[in-house]
Amino acid sequence: MYAHKIIDSISKLANSLAVIMLCGMFLHIILEIILRNSFDTSTFVLDEFVGYAVASLAFLALGETFHKRALIEVTILKDNFSKRNRLFFELFSNLACSVIGSILFYYIGRSVINHFYRGTVSSSVAEVPQFIPEGLLLIGVFVFLLRVFESLWINISLLIVKEY
């Protein structure tokens, strides 16, 4: 289906961004070590930038990790039910994810907008506009929500057409 394909590519793209974050923090730490030991200087923003990278990594990969079911869950109770009844567990779980995801999306989005209009920057020498790192997290939550809604849609249609 067309919608699934779009969601799939967006989610894969976000996941690749997460990979770039991991490479970026690796290179930044190596650069800092070299600067400190060979040139007696520093990038002055290591813990700040690596902090942004870790957070964006975690959030940007969220959609794909959810989709691959690599976010862990306790299945011990669910496994005792029939395939059809298990769908209700899935639906409940999807709903919980949608509620939490939506709250996070709304309030992180609110914070991003505030930072953007107030022009808040970080207090380090780099003066990073704060809407950028938080904006990356917002994108991550958005992709997560897309994946959750997709899963919700699939589970509902399975329940209706009884093709389980």
Partner: peptide
Amino acid sequence: DANGTRTLIEAEASPIQL
């Protein structure tokens, strides 16, 4: 902080952020 970093650079010390 950023002020300390700037001052120590001006004073020709080698400030490090950790």
